[in-house]
Design a protein around this nucleic acid. Structure first.
Lengths: 133, 133
DNA sequence: CCCATTATGTTATAACATAACAAACGCCAA
DNA sequence: TTGGCGTTTGTTATGTTATAACATAATGGG
C-alpha cells in the first residue's frame, strides 16, 4: 500500500511556478504558463494542486478562486490572507490569536479548518492611487 | 439618475426563498427552486443576488460558492460563518473582536471587506456520528 | 515475470458566473 | 401626450472554474 510520498514532475512544476510568482494564480493560468511541459489539461493542474494543498505547500485563496505558494517556514494548513484588490498581491499570516477567540465563541462547534481573508488595499497601492500629482 | 431603490419581484422571490431555507443555496439551486416564477435564467438569479448582497440581506459563503439569507437584525456586510460540513448549516456571527485584532497587525493595509469562515462539525452532527450504538 | 497499485494523460462534462443584446417599463420634460 | 432616456427584466450565448470517467504507462512487491 504505497501512498504517494514524493512529488512527481507535474507537482514540482506547479509548485516551482507558484513559488516563482508571488501572487495567486488561477488553475487555468497555471495551465497556460506550463504549456511547455507535459501538462496539457486542467485535470493535471488540479491533481498537482491537490497534492500540494495536502502538504500545505500551497494555499487556496477562496475569495479569488486562486492558489498561492506558502511562504512560511512552518507550513500551516489554515493561514490568513491580506488580499490587495488593486495589485492582487496577498500577504500571508497565521491567525492564531484570532482563532483562539473564535474557538471561545464556537460553543461546541468543532473547528477543522478556517479561512480568514481580508480584502482591501495594500500600503504600496494606497500611495500610488491616493496621491494627487 | 435614479439608481435602484426598491427590490423587484425577482429580488423578493430570491430573498424569500433564502429566508425560508436556513441553509446556503447555490445559484443554480435557487434557479431550480424558483422554476414556477418568471425567473428562468441564471443571470436573473445572479442579478437578484447582486442587489441583495449590496443591501447585506444576503451573504455569500465563499468556501461553498453559495448564498445565505442574513439572519441578523443589524445587517453587516462582512459576517463570519461557522460552516458544518456534515449538515451544511451555517451559523452567522459578527467577528468584530477578531477583526480589531487583525486591524492591529494589518500595518497599513486598508481593510475594506473580510471573510471569516470556519469549517467543521456542528454540535448536532457531532452527537449523531460520533456515538456508538 | 506478473499482477496490483499508483501515477499520468486525455477527453468530456459538470458547476459556477457573466457578457451581450433585446424588449418592456416608468418617468419626466417638451 | 408623447418621445426619449435610463432602468429593469428577459433571453441567449459564452466564459471560467472544477471534476468525472476512462485509457495508458510506470512502479514495486510477490
Amino acid at each position: 500500500m504505497t501512498k504517494k510520498q514524493t512529488l512527481g514532475e507535474n507537482d514540482k512544476a506547479v509548485l516551482a511556478l507558484l513559488s516563482a510568482r508571488q501572487v495567486p494564480m488561477a488553475a487555468y493560468d497555471i495551465l497556460q504558463a506550463l504549456s511547455g511541459t507535459p501538462i496539457r489539461a486542467a485535470s493535471q493542474v488540479y491533481r498537482a494542486l491537490e497534492k500540494l494543498l495536502e502538504r500545505d505547500l500551497v494555499h487556496r485563496v477562496e475569495s479569488l478562486n486562486a492558489f498561492v505558494a506558502c511562504n512560511h517556514a512552518t507550513h500551516t494548513s489554515s493561514p490568513g490572507f491580506f488580499v490587495c484588490k488593486s495589485c492582487k498581491s496577498v500577504t500571508e499570516f497565521d491567525p492564531v490569536d484570532e482563532v483562539s477567540l473564535l474557538t471561545d465563541r464556537a460553543s461546541g462547534f468543532k473547528i477543522e479548518r478556517y479561512s480568514v481573508e481580508l480584502t482591501g488595499t495594500c500600503v504600496v497601492c494606497q500611495g500610488q492611487s491616493g496621491a494627487p500629482s
